[in-house]
Design a protein around this nucleic acid. Structure first.
Lengths: 188, 188
DNA sequence: CACTGCCGTTCGTCAAGGCGAACGACTCGA
DNA sequence: TCGAGTCGTTCGCCTTGACGAACGGCAGTG
């Protein structure tokens, strides 16, 4: 009930996001303004951090930039993380026979799809990189596997957790038959 | 690159969200307006769907209501889902020894925290309901467990997946020693 | 029954956001 | 070299969001 309260300057964030997303598309300020149906002067002031846009204006921009609305007001940054089975912060229940381990707190505005994977050894699956900003989380359920970035994969056993940027070449290579894992694909 | 483009009426959504979140806290319109530092007339018009609030106004309200900014502009509706091991839509890789099963596509604007759970049989863990809108996803890795809503739990085996509303009483009861599961907690 | 207090709405005023036009700077061809 | 086109910024005008005051409606109370 108290996260996401750290940012007190939404206007500056919006200004940066607008410019970043527009640059990402390669469009000009005038072009984006025209597609959004707003005056380019307005967009210019918004990117400069001046002004306090209305919801309709921001919405039109989010549509023109093809970006989720929240993306403009809440930023994100990925990283790499490996938690071995038994490690990581745990929340011991009142009953001693229940342990929950926090593997990953969801960053603001991320979208996470949940998959289950069953793989056989022999031929590693090398995924072509996905969209920028994608982060993948893997929790190994059964067997053993080499998981992670292609340049330095990590051998995981049951209960191990790893996350890595999905926009870099990565691999999932089962080392035992019927190796199973839960994969959470986080596309911002 | 084309999801989250279905909603064309953000003002109505904001109006509904504002009223819903305010009612959730049990505060009066005047009280929320005072905490947010805005005129209650402004908030009244916003909840009525009239007007087009500025970002600063909406931000102040999101702080006053202690709600993530995006919550006010992007709605969501949960549901219940059970996918037995081996069922569900699968994405067969070019190599036949790799199977990925789509368990849950992330709804817009949801936040999903990833946990790992190891539980022992004997005493079921009954979670008190969380905040409204919370959805929990469980993939059983090892052992067996009774999981789901308290009124009708489901017995899961390795590879089984279930999701349920977290704002209703629910349970996780291990049926074998060292039962392990991956829990994704989705708080909108 | 007044009277007080709070609720949520409506009305008139004022500042601020959004707009269009004009501007200087730059690139690209004729 | 000059003109046309586009870039992003700056400058008044005007619409509109936000404000404060006043309103009617409902308890709770002396």
């Amino acid at each position: 009930m108290s996260e996401s309260r750290e940012n007190g300057a939404p206007l500056a964030v919006i200004a940066a996001s607008l410019q970043r997303e527009r640059r990402r598309t390669g469009l000009s300020l005038a072009e984006v303004a025209r597609r959004a149906g707003i005056a380019k002067s307005t967009l210019s002031q918004l990117e400069a951090g001046t002004g306090n846009p209305s919801v309709e204006t921001l919405w039109a921009l989010s549509v023109a930039l093809d970006v989720p609305f929240a993306q403009l007001v809440e930023p994100t940054r990925p990283k790499v993380q490996l938690i071995r089975a038994g490690e990581g912060p745990t929340f011991q229940a009142e009953r001693a026979d229940y342990v929950a381990t926090m593997l990953s707190a969801c960053p603001p505005n991320a979208r996470r799809d949940v998959f289950q994977i069953v793989a056989q050894p022999g031929k590693p699956r090398e995924s072509d990189p996905h969209m920028p900003g994608v982060v993948e989380h893997v929790v190994l359920s059964r067997g053993r596997a080499l998981v992670g970035l292609l340049e330095e994969p990590v051998e995981l056993g049951p209960g191990d957790y790893i996350s890595y940027p999905g926009d870099l070449p990565h691999v999932f290579e089962a080392l035992e038959p019927d190796t199973a894992a839960v994969l959470v694909s986080e596309h911002i």
